[in-house]
Design a protein around this nucleic acid. Structure first.
Lengths: 236, 236
DNA sequence: GCATTTTTTATACATACGTACAAATAAATA
DNA sequence: TATTTATTTGTACGTATGTATAAAAAATGC
């Protein structure tokens, strides 16, 4: 029995609802099907990676036949991109909104480092900890994607623009700091954010804790920790 | 043409040397074969992930027939573990050595935060930047493994013990800080370390730089940044 | 010098994969 | 009511996968 087969026998959180009959569904039922496929793909890609999750697994987890996935999303790569894009758009919206508000409050002055760190990281960690299972799967998927060649292009497409805006504000608030250092600090912050939400169990093992520390607690630590890190970059 | 097939046509750094004949090679030639297989597997696992790299690809990259891989390493999972283990042992040795020296220098007193950060991170970043191609591939592989379920057990097996020793020293140096915060800081440090060596090209894109920043420069920034982060944890 | 061991090649097998095609069915449209 | 469109099912195809078996060939050991 291969590892993939072992994994395939795992229960998935996406309940198959009902076996459905062929035929055009009434109303926008197809949108619902698309969401179900994306949910199932999100979980499987997060758990097993792009190559480890098959289209068959996705279809089965969504309670559909194989070809329905291809019908709605085309080839596998497009399905993967659709999974990432769905919540990336939401995430980017939240971050841009927070940035706009912070800019307004600052009224022309530089935004504080702590505020920038908080505003960038908070939507992700809040979604991953308070959101539904889909958000948790999405967070795990993004963590897995972070250092992989496959993820690079997708992340660039969906997240780089907003990242650059935050970096510009960080550099403004850290006048005198080497801009490259600020980028490194930003990268460190993102890496820590993804690590917190990955739920690998490593922090528990390293601290001897029995249960997982609430991501909100780690979030507060992350904000303090990385704010201090950024501030030290101004000291040449 | 599938994506995997496109990738398969890429040139690999492991040159096939010569087609060899069957039969027992003289001397410890088999050790050399094992190293070649590990080198090829290291690169392919780093580039394409566990499921994305096939045993056939590994064998071809090493200039061998398919079954030679299975002969030397058994099933695929054992090959993967052997790839990780080979350099993990070296890395762990360097870190423990550095820690022992630092303890001796401190002579019973707590080791400085900056020293601990430097000693833990330095072997990895130095190997990944000054070492041969194998070390670069290994660093990329570890980054890819960091947030994946598959990597969790392997990392635990090879890296947790040393990590706990460093964390204990960090907690000693940060008397008064919440031990859980220290673990979060350590996790952040490791995540940043892996991100620097992943060579995804994202820092270049975010900073507008044409070429990659030398990892040594990022290393110095990481040390400063994370030392400041740890120090702020003592302020309740 | 002959038998044994080690390592490699060559081939085979059952399964899983991504994708495509044809048919069926129900809603929407006219 | 007749036609079209949208969506799902069922099946099929060629290829790739992990693993196993059999054979061959070179070095070693007695």
């Amino acid at each position: 029995m291969t590892m993939r087969q072992q994994l395939s026998s795992l229960k998935l959180g996406v309940e198959p609802d009902l076996p459905r009959k062929p035929g055009r569904p009434k109303g926008g039922r197809s949108d619902q099907t698309r969401e179900r496929i994306l949910d199932a793909a999100e979980q499987l890609f997060a758990d097993r990676g792009y190559d480890g999750a098959s289209i068959r697994d996705v279809a089965a987890a969504a309670g559909l036949q194989i070809h329905s996935v291809g019908y709605h999303f085309g080839p596998k790569e497009q399905l993967f991109d659709a999974v990432v894009a769905r919540r990336a758009d939401i995430m980017t919206g939240l971050r841009r909104e927070a940035l706009a508000e912070a800019r307004q409050r600052a009224g022309g002055a530089a935004i504080s480092i702590m505020q920038l760190v908080r505003d960038y990281v908070s939507p992700f960690i809040q979604s991953a900890s308070h959101g539904d299972e889909g958000w948790r799967n999405y967070a795990a998927l993004m963590g897995r994607l972070a250092n992989s060649p496959l993820g690079t292009g997708i992340i660039a497409r969906h997240y780089d623009q907003t990242a650059r805006e935050y970096i510009a504000e960080l550099q403004r608030a850290l006048a005198g700091a080497d801009p490259e250092d600020v980028v490194d600090g930003f990268s460190a912050m993102v890496a820590a954010m993804l690590g917190i939400c990955a739920a690998t169990g490593r922090p528990e093992r390293l601290s001897g804790r029995a249960s997982r520390r609430p991501p909100e607690d780690s979030f507060e630590t992350l904000v303090r920790f990385h704010t201090a890190g950024f501030l030290t970059l101004t000291i040449a």
